[in-house]
Simulated scan of single mutants.
Amino acid sequence: MRNLESYPKLSNEETRRELEKVIASGKTSELTELALKKPEVIFELERKLEEGDKFDKMDALWALSKLAERLDSTKALILEPAVEPLMKISSSKNRWMRRRAAKTLATLASKAPYGDEIVGRFLEWYLSDGEDKAVPSLEFFSYYFLKTWDEKTAEIVLSRLDEFIQEEETSFDALMTLEAVITSIPPEKAEILRNYVPLLERLKETAPPEVQKLTIRILDEMALKLKALFSRRDALSLQRRSPCL
């Protein structure tokens, strides 16, 4: 694959028309084919994110989200120019755009060679005291942990997740992040989840209905994960007692 810097950053009219046609068709296979044949379309999508109107931004977010899903780790290199504008949109006030950008970045973070840089940026937001960065970082991690298990990052996120769960403004998104962690955490690591049970039991009784419903679902999922942990321990214990198994 050629270095992306070797492609023109200003796409020509023909390329722009091709991109618009593919976006209008909604055919992700044609979009992927075009991006691989003419990677300069990524610069056009970047331009839409930075300079376009609301509809241009929505089109670009759709296209980038589909490309992030379909491209493998090597081919995802062509999407790197879009990371910075996606970061900006992931902290916008438009919830749909913000969450679409966060989901796309989470997909890239889980597979692209520059994924660690994306995770690092969101960890900085997460650990800062900026209220405007709390929800975007939680939204990102709620998608990221659905894509992959990252123990080092999980330890950092879990270190203060209970704070966000108890804050009304961030409670729902923090619980979504916890649910994602529960989904991806290996059973042998699940013991750490027990620390959240008292807080979740309290929320189940006192939180608003939407949060209560989510909390009950999380407790059920946590119980299944812990059950898997103990089943695994029982199996290992049985193996130790019966080496022939």
Rank of each mutant, 00 (worst) to 15 (best):
A35W: 02
L71D: 02
P39T: 04
M222D: 12
L161K: 08
D72V: 06
R232A: 09
R160M: 11
P208K: 05
S137V: 00
Y143C: 02
T206M: 10
S128H: 10
E40M: 09
R17V: 09
C244Y: 13
K57P: 07
R233E: 13
L71G: 03
P8D: 06
K133A: 09
L138H: 07
E50W: 03
F141M: 02
T206H: 12
F164T: 00
R121L: 13
A101I: 02
L236T: 12
L10S: 11
R217K: 15
A228C: 00
A63P: 07
R47V: 00
L77V: 13
E188K: 14
L199Q: 08
G52D: 02
A76Q: 11
E117K: 14
L36I: 13
E30V: 02
T215Q: 11
V41S: 04
S128V: 04
I216W: 10
T170M: 08
S25R: 09
S231C: 07
I182V: 14
P186G: 03
D132P: 00
L4Y: 11
L127D: 09
L193F: 13
L203S: 07
E30G: 00
I165Y: 05
L193R: 06
N195I: 04
L229Q: 14
A82Y: 07
E46V: 13
T177L: 06
E124F: 12
S159C: 06
D53N: 15
V181L: 14
D59T: 05
E69D: 10
I23C: 05
R2H: 09
E20F: 07
I78N: 08
A180K: 03
L86W: 05
E69Y: 13
E169L: 09
L34V: 04
S110P: 08
S25C: 01
N3M: 10
S128L: 01
I182H: 00
K225P: 02
K75I: 01
T28C: 05
L77D: 12
S128N: 07
L19K: 03
E18R: 14
R2T: 10
W96D: 14
K111D: 00
A154R: 01
V119P: 06
V22T: 11
L219Q: 12
E179V: 01
W62R: 04
T32W: 03
I118N: 00
T215W: 10
K48V: 02
Y126G: 00
D53V: 11
R17I: 07
V181Q: 03
S171H: 03
T153W: 08
F172C: 00
T107S: 09
T15R: 13
L193I: 05
K213M: 13
L10E: 15
K152E: 15
K204H: 11
P198V: 03
A24Q: 15
S29V: 09
T215E: 06
E155H: 09
L45M: 07
P136C: 04
T183A: 12
D59L: 03
A68C: 06
L178C: 08
A112L: 01
G52S: 08
E201I: 03
E191S: 13
F140E: 01
L79P: 02
M97L: 12
F164W: 09
T15C: 00
E210F: 03
W96N: 13
R98L: 06
P39L: 04
M176R: 15
S242W: 14
E151D: 14
T28R: 08
F145D: 00
A134Y: 06
F172L: 11
I42C: 05
W96E: 15
T32I: 05
E80G: 04
I182W: 08
W149C: 01
K88I: 08
D53W: 10
Q212H: 09
V135E: 07
T32S: 11
